[in-house]
């Protein structure tokens, strides 16, 4: 099952890349296509951030992940490099768990 999902996902991602190099650029001139293409990735990313920060299975919870994600947001806002953003977030969450075990 996991393999099937992985292969379907890989194939889909690859075909989108090929399509980008193959489809005439005119397609993007359609304003609806353009807006969908701009908005969907943004909505997906924000939703992924929210879901991965607040969910534990089917439960919603606030725990040590939230301070890590907030620090990441501040680091991105300060335009710090990618690695620093990820490293600071992980370190913040790890320290939080040390100080507040079980969070």
């Amino acid at each position: 099952m996991i393999w099937a999902g992985i292969l379907v996902g890989c194939l889909g991602c690859y075909l989108l890349k090929v399509a980008g190099l193959s489809v005439p650029a005119r397609v993007l001139e359609n304003p609806k296509v353009r807006r969908i293409s701009l908005l969907v990735p943004v909505a997906l990313l924000v939703a992924l951030i929210a879901v991965q920060t607040f969910s534990e299975g089917k439960d919603l919870m606030i725990d040590a992940r939230l301070p890590g994600v907030l620090v990441a947001g501040a680091a991105v806002w300060r335009k710090w490099p990618f690695l620093v953003v990820v490293g600071l977030a992980a370190a913040t969450t790890a320290c939080w768990r040390l100080v507040f075990p079980g969070s």
């Binding site: 943004v42 990313l45 924000v46 992924l48 951030i49 991965q52 920060t53 040590a64 992940r65 890590g68 994600v69 990441a72 947001g73 991105v76 990618f82 953003v85 990820v86 600071l88 977030a89 992980a90 370190a91 913040t92 969450t93 790890a94 320290c95 939080w96 768990r97």
Partner: peptide, 16 residues
């Protein structure tokens, strides 16, 4: 323990 579960959301913020 290493806080790796926030690496992905942090990376998404940077991509976003």
């Amino acid at each position: 323990v290493l806080g790796l579960d926030v690496a992905a959301p942090a990376a998404f913020i940077a991509l976003l």
